[in-house]
Design a protein around this nucleic acid. Structure first.
Lengths: 351, 351
DNA sequence: GAATGAATTGACAACGTTGTCTTTGGCGAG
DNA sequence: CTCGCCAAAGACAACGTTGTCAATTCATTC
């Protein structure tokens, strides 16, 4: 009844055993070149492709990489997927995304269901998932290897791709200082979100390096959303102009856009009266007006690195070895870059 | 070696046959309440959950719904997924997303690989995938049921969820007319994208209903992106103000945001000198300044409807019947709504 | 008190691979 | 020439479910 040929058909046609066909499919080296070529020929002739389901059941592996993500961060994950695609494909894996709502439901359960149902061989965790212990606990319990992208907390290097958020943020502050800014505000993101702490630390570093004092009055706690910035930053901008920051640096672009919106509504000219900088170079950054000065993370590079780390783990685990992966220095960091746009400029001296 | 109990363990423990446990798992009605309760008790006690892989292999179905999407449309698909979740969950299905790059690679191949590898039971197609014949051909060839969301072309009603894009666009034009606008421009999206033609038709309808003539000079062809609008709409805004449209309606919010950006750069006040309206109520719509007047599609409703249509097909196919799905009128359309915000206002009389 | 038939339950063979162990064949060393 | 050994290929049993059909149970009917 099955329209598609099974491995047995190939074996019969090629006059070899099923096991030999299987060996050919799995690049086993215990097959003569002649046999391999012959079998390959029959495979092509019959247009045969092995049943992933049967392979999963018998082989105890799915050749699937899970890419769960938290709702709004879809574009981030899309970049990660496209960046890691070639590595995974070469190693015989395929990626599968899954959106999970970290607010309403229990994320850990959601992800547990996802990985159990698909029996993924490995998982890539993106922020803010990479910092949720509940999630990593689930994966550890299921013995599923994973790699975290840009985790906030210290993690096993071989299982994480780090960014230099902290240094980049310090650079940004020093750049603003060099433009004449002396009162530089900061908008902190959600405490649970990746990088939030690192970025704030970078802000502090930058102030120190510029010889400025950290003034708690210039720091506002938000929750990484556009709306929260609009709500919380009002206090900062309501001050009379001689006390108001001349520049505000936000922990991500969404919040920077919120500050920008607020400035528009309050009639504060950007960047003439107020410079605004963000972080992340989200698509939004060039769609608001003026375009946001921000920090770009090399997502594609990070993704490639994460994929390599994960493949290394998988190969180590299975020992079955399809290919020796290129050795990668786990300590290697990826470098972010400053993107200067129109939302920042020289500070004007206030009367 | 397996840490998890298999169905055999449950059967032994419950002193029934494997098949009976299977029947309990599949809600077969050929099981006494007493037996069912007893088996359920053992299942809970052992914390048993069936192996999806084995079920797939033996049952010839994966209980998986594929949700492929085209790169940039991630947030759209996230909404679709969350909207359809409850329906699919009730019917025993789980959704799996997959980003495919419609530019670089061959989308159809990509999707073929995806559905074959996961053996999904059904697929939901979102724009612009819902209009690609290559994709639907692949699915038909594999005999995988699918539902299209907001397809441009006429399609089988039982396999599509339609929107009233056309009517909604006509309303928008009439609203602008009622605000005193007489020269109303239109920005057309990418010809391949869902709704593009319908929306333009609605614009024409709206003009006609308002007694205005369609002026080709007020219509600009773009490709649905923010950047294309910035590039193409310049000509329209460069005219001297007595000839320039007093309102511009764009086929989606990204392009409307592009027009808005352009207006800012050219020093044209919005909405005082120019009203701008978009379509879709994308997240972007409330992040730009001023917020965009737009048309909101009830994505959650559409998703729910698509899920129901798909489940109906799946149940019809398998006849195994877990539950009778609520009958749904396939011809039912979902209604969009006008969202009035600050990017539109009364037309001012020009000197 | 059988005979009838419907409701439950069970036995066994799929499903399409890979894991493990065995067999075969060829070749060099003693 | 024989023994031993290694590389190549095969046999057979997993893997954990569901499909199919046969067997049992139990209430009903004559």
């Amino acid at each position: 009844m099955s329209l598609r040929p099974a491995i047995g058909t190939v074996a019969t046609q090629a006059r070899v055993s099923i096991r030999t066909v299987s060996r050919v499919l799995n690049n086993s080296k215990a097959v003569t070149a002649a046999t391999r070529n012959h079998v390959m020929g029959v495979i092509r002739e019959l247009n045969y492709s092995p049943s992933p389901t049967a392979r999963r059941l018998a082989g105890h592996r799915s050749r699937l990489i899970g890419l769960p993500f938290d709702g709004p961060y879809a574009s981030y994950v899309t970049d990660i997927q496209s960046g890691s695609r070639s590595i995974f494909r070469a190693a015989g894996y395929q990626t599968v995304m899954h959106a999970c709502d970290s607010q309403t439901a229990n994320v850990a359960d959601e992800i547990a269901k996802f990985v159990r149902s698909l029996r993924v061989d490995g998982v890539i965790l993106t922020p803010p998932l990479s910092d949720l212990h509940a999630v990593t606990d689930v994966l550890s319990a299921e013995a599923i290897p994973f790699v975290k992208i840009a985790p906030t907390a210290r993690s096993v290097p071989a299982h994480s791709v780090f960014t230099n958020d902290r240094d980049a943020c310090a650079w940004m502050v020093r750049h603003l200082f060099s433009q004449g800014h002396r009162r530089i505000g900061y908008v902190i993101g959600h405490p649970d979100h990746a990088g939030t702490a690192q970025r704030y630390a970078g802000y502090c570093d930058g102030l120190a390096a510029s010889g400025l004092c950290l003034d708690a009055q210039n720091v506002v706690q938000c929750d990484s959303t556009f709306e929260s910035a609009i709500e919380q930053v009002q206090g900062l901008l309501n001050r009379r102009s001689t006390l108001r920051p001349t520049a505000i640096f936000a922990g991500n672009d969404s919040m920077a856009a919120g500050v920008l919106r607020l400035a528009h509504e309050m009639g504060i000219a950007v960047p003439e009266e107020l410079s605004i900088a963000g972080f992340g170079d989200e698509p939004l950054a060039i769609q608001v007006w003026p375009r946001l000065t921000t920090i770009r993370q090399p997502l594609q590079t990070m993704a490639r690195q994460a994929a390599q780390l994960l493949v290394q783990q998988l190969v180590n685990d299975s020992k079955s070895v399809a290919m020796p992966p290129p050795l990668l220095d786990p300590a290697q960091r990826v470098e972010s870059s400053l993107i200067l746009r129109q939302s920042t400029g020289r500070a004007i001296r206030r009367l």
